[in-house]
């Protein structure tokens, strides 16, 4: 279980997180929604220690997070994909695999993961600079799931994709979470994503979590109704 206790983070005078408390259980899929610029990406980075919180603590199974151990079974899709420019698509996907197996073994696995995000073998040897935004995002997704992680963070997995592709990615994430029992935190603006992949949904607003509840009960939540306006939680 990942638990966030009273996380605070400011950049200069700008307060981004002001006391975030949140928990994600083993095998649970949590979606975090919130306006652009409220600090959702910063929240993920605080959990990972990539951004040092000013105050508060993140625990993993009750203990302060130990980064090396945590990262070993971890995958993350960055909002901007963050592919390595100097490596080809398949080498990006197989980055972790290649640390412990030969290229001959890693490449087929990478091709398989690429196929799962809807990219054919012809993309495998392209360089990241040759990809469109949506393709890069899917390569980033393939890289995140390449080593079958037990904890996965997705930062806006469907942003920049067409509706059909977005639906396919939602299904893929749902399948991964249910099949491997992975713990997932997904940041998204897409309520279809939330419905498709979330067990729970949390709304980050003004630096704190103002709503946290099961996806099946979204219609009853006044905070969500305010946030989503008419498009609510049908």
């Amino acid at each position: 279980m990942i638990a966030l206790h009273d996380l605070h983070k400011s950049f200069g005078p700008k307060r981004v997180l002001a006391g975030v408390n949140l928990q994600v259980g083993q095998g649970e899929s949590l979606c975090v929604i919130g306006q652009s610029g409220t600090g959702k990406s910063v929240l993920l980075k605080c959990i990972l220690g990539l951004v040092q919180p000013d105050r508060g603590q993140v625990t993993w199974n009750g203990r302060p997070i130990d980064r090396a151990g945590f990262m070993a079974g971890f995958g993350m899709l960055f909002q901007g994909a963050a592919l390595f420019d100097s490596l080809s698509v398949w080498q990006n996907v197989a980055f972790r695999l290649r640390q412990r197996m030969s290229d001959a073994k890693a490449r087929p696995i990478a091709l398989d993961k690429l196929a799962r995000v809807g990219l054919g073998p012809e993309t495998a040897d392209l360089m990241p600079a040759e990809l469109s935004g949506g393709m890069a995002k899917r390569v980033g997704l393939a890289r995140a799931i390449a080593d079958d992680p037990s904890v996965i963070f997705f930062d806006e997995p469907t942003t920049g994709l067409d509706p059909i592709r977005a639906r396919a990615i939602n299904t893929l994430i749902r399948d991964i979470v249910t099949q491997t029992g992975a713990t997932a935190i997904t940041i998204t603006h897409d309520m279809d994503s939330v419905r498709a992949i979330g067990d729970r949904v949390a709304l980050l607003q003004g630096g704190t979590i103002v709503h946290d509840g099961p996806v099946t009960r979204m219609a009853d939540a006044p905070a969500l109704a305010d946030f989503l306006g008419d498009g609510v939680a049908k």
């Binding site: 990539l50 090396a68 901007g80 592919l83 980055f95 890289r143």
Partner: peptide, 12 residues
């Protein structure tokens, strides 16, 4: 472009 952060998340 967060590639350095990505390295960390890939245990590198």
């Amino acid at each position: 472009t967060e590639q350095i952060d990505a390295l960390v998340t890939l245990s590198t």
